[in-house]
């Protein structure tokens, strides 16, 4: 229990540092900006109480917002993602449900399952984020284009993380 808690706290800070110092500086063609800090919400244990999930997402979003001068933007998007996560987990659960003692990772439930799980959540998060960023529905195709491009890059980063860092 303590181990899981410590690991998640460490992951929280490492992901924010990575996001602010590394990934916010990646700008292909002015459209792509991967947001890998949401990996924190993706990897929280299945048993996390839903209310705690919302609190953590709010904290995570505000922390990222503080560094990018966009107070409320990442917070609203990650809270939305945390809200939708339990329903997505329910929808794509394996036949026998989730076993106790396992975590939502490629290591336990396979590459395909994790890809599905992360892609849906990343896509919804990015769509929400970019809609809030432009704050209007004029030229909405631009928002969709940005969403698709950034989702591809975030997904690649998230999948790579499964094979390099969080192998177990």
């Amino acid at each position: 229990m303590i181990k899981i808690l410590g690991r998640n706290i460490l992951r929280f800070f490492v992901l924010i540092a990575l996001q602010v110092w590394v990934f916010n500086n990646i700008e292909f063609s002015g459209f792509v900006n991967p947001y890998i800090y949401i990996l924190f919400i993706l990897l929280l244990p299945f048993e996390t109480p839903k209310v705690v999930l919302l609190f953590l997402a709010m904290l995570l979003g505000l922390s990222v917002d503080m560094f990018t001068d966009t107070l409320g933007m990442h917070a609203s998007a990650s809270v939305f993602m945390a809200f939708i996560r339990p329903y997505i987990l329910l929808t794509i659960s394996p036949r026998d449900g989730y076993e106790p003692g396992t975590f939502p990772r490629a290591y336990y439930y396979g590459f395909i399952w994790f890809f599905k799980y992360s892609l849906i959540l990343i896509l919804l998060h990015h769509l929400f984020l970019f809609t809030v960023e432009t704050f209007s529905f004029i030229n909405y195709y631009l928002v969709i284009w940005r969403t698709i491009l950034s989702t591809v890059f975030t997904s690649i980063a998230v999948m790579i993380s499964q094979f390099i860092i969080f192998r177990k």
């Binding site: 107070l71 409320g72 704050f135």
Partner: peptide, 16 residues
């Protein structure tokens, strides 16, 4: 709680 958090976020956003 979700709605409350979103309202807070949007309040920040518009204030900003």
């Amino acid at each position: 709680l979700f709605i409350v958090f979103e309202i807070i976020s949007f309040f920040f956003l518009i204030q900003f």
